[in-house]
Nucleic acid binder design. Structure first.
Lengths: 213, 213, 213, 213
DNA sequence: TATGAATGAGTCTTCATTCAT
DNA sequence: CATGAATGAAGACTCATTCAT
């Protein structure tokens, strides 16, 4: 929403055309996220997206080829940035602290944001949009599991991790995050879940795992 | 085709009208599961359900008030039976064997059956059918987590379980099952997951958890 | 297919087949009147007629070819009997008393009975069932207006009626009856109308009409 | 066909979008009157209305919520304007001339126009649309009968009307108009009715009524 | 005769998409 | 670039009618 330059001159504040267009586009994506995650792909109405974005219905088609393109664009652009943040563990950082950072990041930047809606959307609609599922696997899931595996390799090298299964099944590490996502989305109303505490307990479990008593 | 004579002779035991109706109803539910889990609620077409069930379109409305009723009925009747099978642990059974039984049952009776489609449906459509999400919570989730908590209590009493967090967060125990469900549904094509092995690894982790080395 | 013999053998009191059939048929007609007059032809449902008549849906088709036949049969059989009752005025009866009898009969045997529903049905659906309108004209309207004209001729001969217009426009005599019918059907709830008093006032008007003061 | 220039030259004055929309709306109402009065509410098909109005099916739903709203709007907007024209009688106008004006107006502006179809529609469908019947009573019937009563009061004051029943039963005055409406709609084909002459005869009758000879 | 489960043609209604302004 | 009136294909749902029992 940078509307901070070149305003005082004319009657209308007119920022550069390209800028306004980008803003409109983003407003549409924001609105689309609301509608798609509330209604699902099929039941979401383009008109509602337009209304929520405060643009005309036709405007959406100036920015996106059709409803499906809008949907896929939404999902694609919303999660890819996340992956970049997962880097190989280096230096003397403990696995525990890396896992804790991961958990914190997950809760702060995904679970409590609208990104969680996106993930739920992928889960909900992935079956009907195989290309989306594939894209998501390639761009999000595969890198994330690979990162977890690297983290486990690192942990084993450091002696912090002793259970080799964790390297084989990075899903075990990600598991509680997924559960948290679904739980908050569907059952949070009925039974609150202290996700942060659960994640901490889970990290404890991972680090204790494999130790021969 | 004389219709008034010779009935007891043939192979089929003259299913009473009511019986045939019940069969029709079940055929519709089966077909609906196929269509709904393949297409999602909104995109599934009643006509396709009818075609798959080999009945006329109108027949569906003879058995279900509308598309939504068919959907909810489908989900409701498909999962409740499962819950009955979870009984309190008794006698001298080890927690490990109980967890292994649970894991086996999950893989055999849910993951590799169409029930997994139902659960995916609940996850996918729960947002738009709050009553369904609530029903599912009440009838499936809550009993299942309660059973897990009882199992952990039992394990702690027996000394097999030493990590009290597991009692507080039964979600940690169920987690990998949920991950498996989603993974197989969306990403199984891209990367196979040996769910049974993962579940075993998870059980090991649970049982080792909390031990002070 | 002799249906009239050999019946007294069995247990149930079973009236003759033909009798039962006639009863069923009449029950269907009664139910049809209720439904058609409440819903109109198009919106009335055969299933509701069946339910109200306490017969199966298929039974209706044993007695009537289709929905339209049921409707036409209903209208035809319900009004024709009325016409027979209008006979030529004879003897020394005054026109006033004849008109009063007509008014009484109308109120008692039509307005306050379900026959009024039939007439309303003819008015409502006549446009779409020209054959019905024609039938109704031929069997009810034409005879009734002819009877009124005869009555006026009779009245003029007796000196009771002095206005020749009444002979030319028998509709003027029938008018208030029609108004009463529609009023009671549509607006009776909002403003009651004392039909009998109105009819008396109308008769006074007719008899005073044409007198040169 | 350059679209950006040369607009003031042509014949058509560039109807603004809103104006065109209003025209479309009116075209739909006109077409709906045709279809509804020919087929009745239930049997009229929206698609036929659209075709007759030369618009797409969906366009109708752009202007009216559903079929029923279209129907009610049609009836509501078509008759209310009439009521405004009935004003209290003033000055030295004779009751006869007022009644004659009323009769002329009825024949010219209702009976021989499509408004008569509307009234027939109200009669035909009023039972199934109670709100419509009520609306019609409130907006048309009640004002009309009240106007007639005022007219009779005025006539009595002037000495032209001597029959007090006419004040009590304004329906007696309106009667023949209603009969004419129904007659022309249903039986006009079988037996023509000279409505104007009948109305004149009726007016004579009213003015003679109550005179003691 | 009587039934009611089954059928599918027929309708209303929605909504993604287009396009004239 | 932006708009929203117009469109019509698509899909849910109804109900008269049939027919096996």
């Amino acid at each position: 929403m940078s509307r901070s330059t070149a305003k005082q001159t004319a009657s209308k504040p007119k920022p550069s055309r390209a800028l306004r267009a980008a803003e409109t586009r983003q407003a549409i994506l924001d609105a689309a996220l609301d509608e798609f995650s509330a209604q699902g792909f099929a039941a979401a109405r383009i008109e509602d997206v337009a209304k929520r974005a405060a643009v005309g219905k036709g405007t959406i088609y100036l920015h996106f080829k059709d409803k499906e393109a809008l949907f896929q664009e939404l999902v694609r652009t919303s999660l890819v940035p996340l992956v970049g943040s997962m880097r190989a563990p280096t230096g003397e950082v403990s696995v525990r602290s890396l896992l804790e950072t991961f958990a914190d990041t997950f809760v702060r930047d995904i679970l409590n944001t609208r990104r969680s809606d996106i993930i739920r959307l992928v889960i909900a609609e992935g079956r009907r949009f195989p290309s989306l599922a594939e894209f998501h696997f390639r761009e999000v899931i595969a890198p994330a599991t690979a990162a977890m595996q690297r983290l486990m390799t690192y942990g084993i090298a450091r002696g912090e991790i002793t259970n080799p299964d964790l390297q084989r099944f990075p899903q075990l590490i990600i598991g509680p995050a997924m559960v948290a996502l679904i739980w908050q989305g569907l059952f949070g109303k009925f039974a609150a879940l202290d996700v942060a505490a659960m994640m901490r307990a889970h990290i404890d479990m991972i680090l204790q795992s494999g130790r021969t008593p």
